[in-house]
Design a protein around this nucleic acid. Structure first.
Lengths: 199, 199
DNA sequence: CTATGATGTGAATTGTGAATCACAATTCTT
DNA sequence: AAGAATTGTGATTCACAATTCACATCATAG
């Protein structure tokens, strides 16, 4: 039976989410128009009513990721009392988001996204750089208010903050979800605090 | 002109190295029989004299990576005086190896390797697990000899150790080599020490 | 209720890359 | 140096995935 007709706007959302899910399961390599269409419940050719090409879909996926990434930062910023607390919240948030959408770090840190448009690599680089700058800013604020040691290098600390998340994501995925991510959250944070906090 | 004839054994080495280089430049997606053959200086079909399939080449690449990874650990073990020193050496060694062959973390942590043989993912998981176990063992030894705090969880510390390397590798690659990796080595290590060392 | 634009469908087209094969050129053995 | 084995080559096949297109169907404005 034919699929129910749906606004392009909604379909685009569905398609992008389906693409993300598909990457989630099969990696970038497994991302195909047919696969996306199947998940959405339409026929491959119908997808072209809503996106001009596979590349366009991929760009939209990157948009989604970018948005969610930045949303996390501002979310943590609103709830936290101080810089360290903000980092802790951001960390937890990222891990929680991983639970819903492990594909995100996969896409961002995969090399497969770079083929095709050469500008895409630069764009991802910019997104990550922006994210790291945000984290650095939080750390710099921590140094100002005395909660983070003065000898901590913000840029390096930001990379190590990422280092709590990225390997965990990879391990979780590669181990077929056997990696104990809750345990990791509980034990990694104190260690990070030891690395940067005063006293 | 035809390529000079060469022993299968040598060709296999050339092919594996070429495959690694190609992944290096173009990612897993860019890995093609034609691309490998071109780098080796032979014609695509000639490659099948030395490998039965593309999958076989990929397996050989994984072998190479596995070997180099474990070689690093034993290398650091031989030179170091104590556990902390061993970790520091291992860290530096990994980064140095990155310089020669950034493709390694790309392959290991990419999702694209998992398509095809489903056993491959399990195999990579095993390799990483083995590596992490080695790091954990070093940390456990550090706790015994009093150089590492007793409240440090070896498994978590091992993941964070990986967290010094993986993001750096990704950033270096994604930023077109702009990321200051020497600076990272210099500043990340003290931070890691703060996180685990006694006093 | 009907015309019209938006959305969906299946078939056909095209491009790409892996793999095969018959044949050619080379290296090696003796 | 002749013959066997190994390695290299170009043409070709095959499967698969992206994209296009003519046509069908739905949703809705009027």
């Amino acid at each position: 039976m034919p699929a129910r007709k749906t606004d392009t706007e909604q379909r685009q959302d569905q398609i992008v989410q389906a693409a993300l899910d598909l990457i989630n399961d099969s990696g970038i390599t497994g991302l195909s128009i047919a696969g996306i269409a199947q998940r959405v419940g339409i026929v491959p050719s119908a997808l072209y009513r809503h996106f001009s090409s596979k590349d366009a879909v991929l760009d939209a996926v990157l948009n989604l990721i970018e948005t969610r990434l930045l949303a996390n930062v501002s979310y943590a910023g609103k709830l936290a009392s101080g810089p360290l607390e903000q980092l802790r919240l951001l960390f937890r948030r990222h891990i929680a988001m991983l639970n819903e959408n492990q594909a995100i770090p996969h896409v961002v840190f995969s090399d497969a996204v770079y083929t095709g448009d050469p500008g895409r690599k630069a764009r991802i680089a910019r997104t990550i750089a922006t994210y790291l700058k945000e984290v650095e800013a939080i750390i710099a604020r921590g140094k100002e208010d005395g909660s983070i040691r003065m000898d901590v290098v913000p840029a390096t600390a930001a990379v190590m903050f990422l280092g709590m998340i990225m390997p965990a994501a990879v391990l979780w995925n590669i181990s077929e979800k056997k990696f104990d991510i809750a345990f990791h959250v509980k034990t990694a944070w104190p260690m990070f605090e030891h690395a940067v906090a005063v006293k």
